[in-house]
Design a protein around this nucleic acid. Structure first.
Length: 95
DNA sequence: CTTCTGACA
DNA sequence: TGTCAGTA
């Protein structure tokens, strides 16, 4: 019941900025640093999905743990690689 | 809404 | 280095 129909999971930058507790400029900086890749509308407006919002929350936590933006990017890169390997491992086991 | 520049902790 | 503020 959480989502109602059509525009579930799409947020403007002002909304996500408030949700993660940071400024809009910082979120744009994260994207420039390669930490984030939100979809863009034809007019150039960023549209953040629910997954993007989760990533932004993860960025905030990692930053509080003392990592810099480069470290955050590395962690998420490794996590993506880990998930990929885990999926391949699961595939190999079932075979 | 976007981008850029400048200043601060 | 990351964040915030003001501007075009």
């Amino acid at each position: 019941m959480a989502e109602s129909g059509s525009e579930a999971g799409l947020y403007a930058i002002s909304v996500v900025a408030h949700l993660v507790g940071t400024g809009q400029q910082n979120i744009r900086l994260y994207e420039r640093r390669g930490l984030l890749t939100p979809d863009r509308t034809a007019g150039g407006t960023r549209q953040y999905s629910d997954a993007d919002l989760a990533v932004l929350r993860r960025i905030g936590e990692l930053l509080e743990e003392g990592l810099n933006l480069a470290g955050v990017a590395k962690v998420m890169e490794l996590e993506a690689a880990n998930a990929r390997l885990r999926a391949e491992l699961k595939r190999a086991r079932s075979r």
